[in-house]
Design a protein around this nucleic acid. Structure first.
Lengths: 251, 251
DNA sequence: GATGCCAGCTTGTATGAACAAGTGGCCCTC
DNA sequence: GAGGGCCACTTGTTCATACAAGCTGGCATC
């Protein structure tokens, strides 16, 4: 499926692991074995297994054979950056409604995040999102000025804004940065999500970039407690997650 | 500093980026340039820049020069898995107190997480952790039976359990899996963290493995809202973070 | 039977070469 | 001036080889 050789091999290994041909905790064949079996060089096989290691499927340490750590496949970048794509892959029915859409000057923080001039205009969008009919997430997004026209052209019940502007305006997300913490529901949050005020919400703020490193949007998503869980796999070789002190501590 | 050539080059590039020699948004020299400059082959340089890409410092796409995306260095695995190491690196004064330590049969979930027999014994530890004198996190950990003796031998005010058992019993964490969500404070949480009952807490449950894939501990950490923020960087090439539906949705 | 050592296997690091694929800027045309 | 096409440059993929470093299991020893 993957167009390059090492992606093919990686996909085949993923399948073999998921199907149980390489059970959880078992040791994978050596690189030389895999290279011979696939008629590829050891370097190519190493690229394939490096992919699986970075996905957290297998563990690797010098001298010892690689070990199977998990069986499920990791989500794609698209599914993490797009609520709609994720929900669809989960088999949930997703719907969204834009409640507000206004062009206004950027605050200082927004300008800094989007790498725009302070006081430049941005597009603010308030959206309520449902899973299987239940309100699950409130989304407050600020779009950079250069994508605003594409977003303003979309209908109120657009399911996936990122998908739509990728298709119509060729604005494709490539990098993302995510800040995750917990906050108390404000009165607007509480009304929209149908929870009590000050009840716990999981907040995911994220910044999305194009392939060239240009900021697209800065958004504040608040999930009803219990509706989603974030999952990170890390190792001594790769630690994609960071922990930062919040205002209560730095203060 | 790094013992291998590509780690040296990566560290030098990190320094250059952090110091502003390669400003944010600027384009890095080509692989050939770097290879010539460092007297290394292109393959070695590629390993170095691949490291920085995986750390989210630079972006990469075929045909175009690499772009500087951030300047700060990413935390190490140790700092993510050890609250004490992280706090120390932040320059905060950290203290901990073990409030409870009991050996009891594992629940079904605990046995499944630790890959132990249901009903086998585990060590339950309840700990309260402070940053700069303020209570910030409640930690409820279940240790696998084979590490229990090492943990039981530690004093009540041990600052870092993971550090201690790594040094004394040669139990070294190598992989970790993290589940992050928001919950309401229970009465015990509220009393210990000095917040109101049902106020929002950021929960980080995590499972720690040895290099050989053996489970060490399964823990439930609850942070006072506002005290910490988790941060993840991802790209189309690597998405280390997943989102999962919680019980409210799968219901 | 327990312990320690060693040989062979396996992964990690590094080189050099070649071709494929995508980008960006230049130049030419309309 | 706008648009399109061409080309040099850059990153991505793959190969073959060599050596370094760490692990495992079996053998010899005590």
């Amino acid at each position: 499926m993957g167009r390059s050789r090492y992606e093919e091999i990686a996909e085949a290994l993923r399948q073999a692991i998921r199907s149980g041909a390489h059970p959880l905790g078992s040791r994978l064949p050596s690189e030389s074995d895999l290279a011979a079996r696939w008629g590829a060089s050891r370097g190519t096989v190493r690229q394939a297994v490096a992919l699986l290691v970075s996905e957290g499927l297998i563990g690797s340490r010098q001298g010892a054979r690689r070990v199977v750590l998990r069986q499920e496949r990791r989500q794609s970048f698209q599914q993490l950056n797009s609520f709609a794509q994720w929900a669809r892959a989960m088999g949930c029915e997703v719907s969204s409604r834009i409640l507000e859409r206004t062009v206004r000057p950027a605050t200082d923080e927004e300008a800094a995040r989007l790498d725009a001039e302070p006081g430049g205009e941005v597009l603010y969008v308030l959206r309520l999102r449902h899973l299987d009919g239940e309100p699950v997430m409130v989304e407050r997004t600020v779009y950079a000025e250069w994508v605003a026209p594409a977003v303003l052209a979309l209908p109120e019940d657009c399911v996936s804004i990122m998908d739509s502007i990728a298709e119509r305006a060729d604005v494709v997300a490539h990098y993302g940065e995510h800040l995750i913490d917990a906050v108390a529901a404000g009165s607007e949050d509480a009304r929209l999500l149908r929870v009590r005020r000050a009840s716990p919400l999981l907040r995911q703020r994220h910044l999305t970039y194009t392939a060239a490193g240009r900021a697209i949007e800065w958004t504040d998503d608040r999930y009803r407690a219990g509706s989603v869980v974030f999952n990170v796999m890390n190792s001594a070789a790769a630690a994609p997650l960071e922990r930062h002190a919040g205002p209560d501590v730095t203060g």
